[in-house]
Amino acid sequence: MSAAWGAMARTFPWFARVFAHEAPWHDCCVVHDQAYHLGGETADAEAGFFARLEADEELRMCVQSVADAQAETLALQYDSTPEDVTAAIIFVADRMYEAVRVGGLPCSGLPWRWGYGWPQCF
């Protein structure tokens, strides 16, 4: 997700001027990426399923917490209202959750899959 944010900033200069090159929730993405790299603490498939679900839910909650903590400041930066910023961030958090649930499946061959720090599943 951070890569997508950076690509938007590089592609559209206005995006970078308004939103900067790093999402306000960048730290949430780093923690989520670390969880995906490890892919859970055991090789047990059921435990891995629940560990991934927990990591994805924590990502959504972390991004949503940015709205609580920074809505006022971001509203000034984005020339908007705190309510609109909060609604937008919650919308983004939900879409991010959906994206990682679909796009982060283990054994998918994708470089961002669950457990990408380990050899591909066979």
Rank of each mutant, 00 (worst) to 15 (best):
G39H: 05
C62D: 00
C121T: 07
A9S: 02
Q64N: 15
G6M: 01
Q70M: 13
E98S: 11
C107E: 05
W114V: 01
L76G: 14
A93Y: 03
R113N: 04
S108K: 04
G104N: 06
M61Q: 15
P111Y: 12
G103W: 10
F12P: 00
Q64M: 15
Y36V: 06
A9L: 01
D84V: 02
R17V: 02
Q77A: 13
F91L: 12
T42R: 11
V102P: 03
P82C: 08
R113H: 09
L59C: 02
P106E: 04
M96S: 01
A93S: 07
E46A: 12
E54K: 13
C28A: 04
A47R: 06
E46G: 11
H32Y: 03
T42K: 10
T11W: 08
V100R: 08
Q77K: 14
G48I: 09
C62S: 00
A16P: 00
I89P: 06
R17P: 09
G48D: 10
A55M: 03
Q34E: 15
G104H: 08
Y97T: 02
Q70L: 13
E58Q: 14
D84C: 07
G39V: 04
R113S: 06
G39F: 11
G40R: 06
G115F: 09
Q64R: 15
V85F: 02
M61P: 05
L105C: 12
R113M: 09
P82K: 09
W114F: 10
F122Q: 14
W112G: 07
A3K: 13
F91C: 11
A99W: 06
Q77V: 14
A55H: 04
D84E: 12
A93E: 02
L59I: 07
W112S: 07
T42E: 05
Y78M: 10
G115W: 05
L105A: 15
E57I: 12
G39M: 07
A67M: 00
V63C: 00
A47S: 11
H26G: 01
A71R: 04
V102R: 13
A35Q: 12
D27C: 10
D44P: 05
W114P: 03
L110D: 09
W5G: 00
H32I: 01
E54Q: 13
V18A: 08
A55S: 07
V30D: 13
A20K: 15
G48Y: 14
H32V: 06
L105Y: 12
A51M: 01
E54I: 06
W5I: 00
H26N: 01
M96L: 14
G40E: 10
V85M: 02
P82F: 10
E57R: 15
S2I: 03
G117H: 12
F122G: 13
R52F: 00
A35F: 07
A4L: 00
Y116H: 13
A35D: 11
L74D: 04
G40Y: 05
F49A: 05
Q64H: 14
T86G: 15
F12E: 01
M61A: 15
F49I: 04
W118L: 15
D56W: 00
G39K: 04
R101F: 08
G40V: 07
D33H: 07
G104R: 03
Q70Y: 13
A20V: 09
F15E: 04
P119F: 00
E57T: 13
